[in-house]
């Protein structure tokens, strides 16, 4: 585990928030993912040692929540809503557009290492469906045209770098 000193101190701090150490499992995992971008294979053992648990207990938590990623992702994370409202107004098409634009498949890192497209459950903005979350930024009413526009924007930003 190669964590930043800042993260380590946060971890030590967050453990003190709970009466039993075990309860700090989720915050710890979040902190590690924020730091590294995903949860590497040895996370379970590291966290278990930290919280005096068995590694399998931590692994159970990691595999339960879809938001914990066990594999690295691209620099940008595009999450397309798949739930009913968005699906009805073309969420699937939006998702397919992103996949085609970046020549990638769901859950995989695009060949240029720029993005990972995920088809996720409700992003809680049904009134403006279909919605897409790119990193922490919510985009509403993303039809195919807007999806293309967003893709171009991301590609342009990538080129600048």
């Amino acid at each position: 585990m190669n964590l930043k000193a800042e993260t380590l101190s946060k971890i030590d701090e967050v453990i003190t928030h709970y009466p039993v150490k075990r309860s700090a499992t989720l915050p710890l995992l979040h902190l590690i993912q924020e730091d590294i971008g995903h949860l590497p294979a040895d996370t379970s053992e590291w966290v278990a040692a930290k919280l005096e648990l068995e590694p399998i207990n931590v692994l159970e938590v990691i595999t339960f929540y879809p938001m914990f990623r066990q594999k690295p992702i691209g620099r940008r994370h595009i999450k397309v809503c798949r739930t009913l409202s968005c699906a009805l107004v073309g969420g699937y098409k939006t998702c397919a557009t992103f996949e085609a634009e970046f020549k990638t498949h769901l859950g995989e890192v695009s060949p240029d290492g720029e993005v990972t497209v995920d088809f996720v459950e409700c992003l809680a903005s049904c009134g403006t469906a279909p919605v897409v979350l790119i990193d922490d930024e919510l985009h509403e009413k993303v039809d195919v045209a807007k999806a293309k526009q967003l893709s171009d924007q991301i590609k342009a930003e990538a080129k600048k770098r």
Partner: peptide, 10 residues
């Protein structure tokens, strides 16, 4: 010997 667990719950 706590080595067993459920993963991918759901």
């Amino acid at each position: 010997d706590d080595v067993l667990g459920f993963v991918d719950r759901g």
